[in-house]
Design a protein around this nucleic acid. Structure first.
Lengths: 213, 213
DNA sequence: TAGATTGTTAATCGATTAACAATC
DNA sequence: TAGATTGTTAATCGATTAACAATC
């Protein structure tokens, strides 16, 4: 049965399923089960079966799932069975690490340009890239049909960068700056904030050290 | 009224509230409201009031919240009104960026050591640190009362690193490697996976480009 | 006082889990 | 066939929202 509307939280788990399936494949496994996947991910088998049921039927009763088939299906569902071009804005330390991060290309997210507004950086090499000025951004986005952008600039510049990217047609933003981006409908934003994650965990550690909140 | 049990999802939003309160403070604002906070964060004012109600009463009817007071209270609740020592494992590109990431120290998360198992890296400088061997890890954790660890090693090494950190008494892991860590109770794990985030968004972009799932 | 906004309750909405018929 | 595991239903659990009395 195919879904009317898939909860976003379910979509967000598919990349994790994809990852564990790729590991199973690398181990040479041909068949798996919702139980095994759940054990590896620390979630219930029921949740995995329920999540998958939003998209179709992928297993066989009594047997389980063909690892490669399920992997391929999830890639198709997520639309990651193709290349995606991505622009990276910000050529500081973070931009440097992201420009070198091999997992993007391994997963078919191809960075097609690194941009910065610092005249001292423009024209300089960064890994296999040459840092470009923001004046070239629109052209690259349009010519390479870029839909995804990574924001790796300081907080003070991030809102303006987001606005520019959206103006130029970007509809998915991965934002490393510690600001909330209020985007128009049709534009997705995901946040990466390691400080917020540490703060989240600090709540629990502090508690266990015997203090009330 | 003080809570029996605060949902984890509520705790996870406190760092975001903290962030916007700090921005308001930097703008010189003295008073705010759940409405204003919600507008800035793209969530409902009701949710903010409900979230805060798990921890006490922080506002005044008819007036709103004192920005500084609420900020201080949330810092106290999250236990981020103090320094936390953190170890960083992995001195590759990612470790390099993290070692330079000023927001950790600005938010009182102090990296007290950078570790790697590569003999060619051990002893080399990395920003203000000197890369140390894994044999020094236990001593640093115990002497500096470290409870938090950041994992920035390749996937193949990450599980073993996590196990070691937990053995040495770490109870909060920020994991950048694309693996799931099954940790014992009392140990928290947070994940940073930019590829998973891009894949999550690819689902929606692909759809809008006119394809079924 | 009049106006505004909180804190809280109750209703709604949504996600997870348990259980099991279907079936490989 | 017997055993195993899926896909799905219904029940449970939890989170969000709406509404408003309390009150500054």
């Amino acid at each position: 049965m195919i879904r009317a509307h898939v909860p976003d939280i379910v979509v967000g788990r598919l990349p994790i399923y994809l990852r564990v399936l790729n590991y199973l494949l690398a181990e040479g496994r041909q068949i798996t089960s919702s139980q095994e996947l759940g054990d590896r991910l620390g979630i219930s088998s029921a949740q995995i079966r329920k999540d998958l049921s939003h998209f179709g039927e992928f297993g066989k009763q009594g047997t389980g799932y063909d690892v490669r088939y399920l992997r391929d299906q999830i890639e198709r569902i997520l639309h990651v069975d193709r290349d995606w071009n991505v622009v990276l804005i910000g050529a500081g330390d973070l931009g440097h690490a992201l420009a070198h991060y091999h997992r993007f290309a391994e997963n078919r997210f191809n960075i097609v340009g690194v941009f910065d507004n610092d005249p001292n950086k423009i024209g300089k090499p960064l890994g296999k890239f040459v840092i470009r000025g923001m004046d070239e951004l629109e052209q690259v986005i349009r010519e390479q049909n870029v839909k995804m952008g990574i924001i790796a600039v300081p907080a003070a510049a991030a809102r303006e960068v987001a606005r520019t990217l959206i103006d130029y047609g970007i509809t998915a933003l991965l934002n490393y700056a510690p600001i909330t981006i209020i985007a128009p409908v049709g534009v997705r934003v995901q946040y990466i904030d390691p400080v917020a994650r540490l703060q989240h965990m600090a709540y629990y550690i502090g508690k266990e050290n015997g203090e009330e909140s």
